[in-house]
């Protein structure tokens, strides 16, 4: 199975990189883009063939290492 982990800064956390990227897009003429939030993306190739096991394992390592819950939240996709 493959688990995809998307880590982003929590909504309450200011994202200076996202803001700078948004400013750059605006200066390129993309006024239709209101706001940008950037983050990290992890692909985990897992030995298991069970989707629930894969999801649980991805959540475990996200909690333990991939994300810092003080500033970040994460979302997992499994396929």
């Amino acid at each position: 199975m493959r688990a995809r982990v998307f880590v982003t800064l929590k909504a309450s956390v200011f994202d200076p990189q996202g803001k700078t990227i948004a400013d750059a897009l605006h200066s390129l003429g993309y006024e239709a883009i209101d706001e940008v939030r950037q983050g990290k993306y992890f692909e985990l190739d897992l030995k298991t063939t069970e989707a629930e096991q894969a999801r649980a394992l991805a959540a475990e390592v996200a909690d333990k290492l991939l994300a810092n819950p003080v500033i970040e939240s994460y979302r997992i996709e499994v396929d």
Binding site: L9, V13, F14, P16, Q17, T20, N68, V70, I71
Partner: peptide
């Protein structure tokens, strides 16, 4: 110390990058 939970909070990129 922050990551280890010995102190509260976390560090972000400097706001001026």
């Amino acid at each position: 110390l922050l990551e280890a939970g010995l102190l509260p909070g976390a560090m972000l990129r400097n706001d001026n990058l």
